[in-house]
Write a protein that binds this DNA or RNA. Sequence first.
DNA 1: ACAGCGCTTTGATTTACATCAAGAAAGCAT
DNA 2: ATGCTTTCTTGATGTAAATCAAAGCGCTGT
Lengths: 250, 250
Amino acid sequence: MKTVPLHSAKKPAVACNNCSLSELCLPRGLTREELELLESSINKTVKIKKKDYLFHRDDKQQSIFAVKAGAIKTSLSTPDGEEQILGFYLPGDLLGFDAFARDRHTCDAQALDDTLVCELSMDNFQELCGKLPAMRGQMMRQIGSELEREQMLLLTLGQMRTEERLATFLSSLSERNKERGFSSNEFNLPMARHDLANYLGMAVETLSRMFSRLQEEKIISVQHRLVKIEDMARLKQLAHHTCHPAGDVL
Amino acid sequence: MKTVPLHSAKKPAVACNNCSLSELCLPRGLTREELELLESSINKTVKIKKKDYLFHRDDKQQSIFAVKAGAIKTSLSTPDGEEQILGFYLPGDLLGFDAFARDRHTCDAQALDDTLVCELSMDNFQELCGKLPAMRGQMMRQIGSELEREQMLLLTLGQMRTEERLATFLSSLSERNKERGFSSNEFNLPMARHDLANYLGMAVETLSRMFSRLQEEKIISVQHRLVKIEDMARLKQLAHHTCHPAGDVL
DNA sequence: ACAGCGCTTTGATTTACATCAAGAAAGCAT
DNA sequence: ATGCTTTCTTGATGTAAATCAAAGCGCTGT
């Protein structure tokens, strides 16, 4: 097993403590020393072009990743070419946990845009988990969030009608933006209609109709990817199925 | 934090090494000494009567649990009383990971039958994770499986038609039984129609119709909860959407 | 045994959504 | 700009599955 230099002589390429995402990402709750150890363990930041893959299903797991800029979607696909999008990962989100079961990724991860991710190798990850209980705790929380997010999506797909699904999605994207200090009333969708429809388990046409419907009802206004929430109360009401205020990823 | 006696004088109440489930449960891959440490950390085994709850949503997480006998369902429910069943946990399955995100459970866990579970307190769990890398690894794998299982269910709910959903479910239950040394061709469903229908995101009536349809097509035969698979090849073909042979829980 | 209750199946009808089809708008290259 | 491709919206039609309704079956307990 590779060992991590405890205090590397030269300044690491990655500086988590300067990163605007440090409160959302792994560093949260770590002490100064722990943070330094983490920084020196981050292997590098990687650029991925739009439509390129960060990993494929069945790839051996090398690392876990943190999105720094851009957006990633993960999806499962079937022999006959059908796909189900499992999640959208935006800046501050971690991904790669899916491979914990068998050391191989269980889904594909593709960039929706030109994207920047930080990479932490599994070796380093394991070592940090052994050494730093706080780091292990933070990691557990991240995995827990992932589990929770998928559970919410199950509820959405299993129980809600299409309008509710969209309302729920918009409401949680809004929450998410608020948490990150962005506007909760006006934002751009990071994904195309096609991807969102698939994620929400409906046809693109249906999604489009639901956007129109919410607009007619004066709950939102949309043009292309720009969404404005005009009546948050009614949106939340439509999305009342949703139990959680929080949620880390979409 | 409580400390775990390294070698308790008296024999622990729990004997993982005698347990028929040790190959599926936490002990897998642990050395003799590690196993002893685990055994002495298991707090107790708990009995839960049919319809009683192991935990509720928002309960503070005290423990993780391993099902020894019986069956547990986990579910999410909405303010207006709708429910989505998230998983069925059978002997050898672990549950409780959902609380990792916020130290509180994100779903309810209810016994489908009189049930026996082993309980490992979070304190002991944390301690073991720090001490035993093998144990931490096994735990990560378990969590990974949970994530993977939920992903498969998302694919099922998002993309499949009702007949495919049932076929997929039966096929994976069959696999699961084979792995545990039970018959893969003939088994009892551990849950009522109502619960299965909800889990698969359809109405009870539709589920019933799909059972009938599969029976008409001579793929299975059903009476009450007893299912016989008459034509495994065609069942798998119907369930072709499913990518994975494995899968730990349902 | 019987009644009574919950669970399951089957049938008739309705409906939400998918599919099919076409047009409008936006992005991209030349 | 111009045309071309891709993405998105809207309309018309079809269908899978929900809902409504009722009957059959298998429990439980008296």
